[in-house]
């Protein structure tokens, strides 16, 4: 097998992955709708549930929805892994950079926002 053959094979593999069927796409959308309904239910019940449980639940559901859209609708689950790595690089970079930025302002997601009195605009 020549280098060119190998090259073309890789490319054909790239194009020949199985897309989910339309029925599966509808099922995935219904799951996303159900997850959104659970999010709203958590929001409605926030006074009756421990605040940290509501926050963890909402963030967990958000991550699951994010993953489902990325994996199935954006085809990352079926596509070349280089694309997943590329996107994850940007995503992780953003999370790390802004986590550091928020930490420098002593921001606490679990308490009441920022605690740094020196931030412009905060009295």
């Amino acid at each position: 097998m020549t280098a060119t053959d190998s090259h073309v094979d890789t490319h054909e593999q790239e194009h020949e992955y199985e897309h989910p069927s339309d029925r599966k796409y509808v099922t995935i959308a219904l799951i996303l709708g159900a997850l959104t309904a659970i999010e709203i239910l958590l929001f409605v019940l926030e006074d009756d549930l421990p605040r940290s449980l509501v926050k963890v639940g909402l963030i967990g559901l958000m991550i699951v929805k994010f993953w489902i859209v990325g994996a199935y609708f954006m085809h990352l689950k079926f596509d070349n892994k280089v694309l997943t790595q590329l996107f994850m690089f940007g995503l992780v970079l953003a999370i790390v950079v802004y986590f550091i930025m928020l930490s420098s302002f002593e921001f606490s997601f679990w308490n009441d926002g920022i605690e740094d009195p020196g931030l412009p605009g905060n009295s």
Binding site: L83, L91, L102, F107, I114
Partner: peptide, 29 residues
């Protein structure tokens, strides 16, 4: 094995994560 257009779009989306990361972080503050 990935078309240049598709790679460029994913690169753009990865960079857009930083834009929205900045805006979401600012709102959180």
């Amino acid at each position: 094995g990935i078309s240049n257009n598709k790679l460029a779009m994913w690169l753009f989306l990865a960079s857009d994560c930083l834009l929205f990361g900045a805006l979401i972080s600012t709102f959180l503050l």
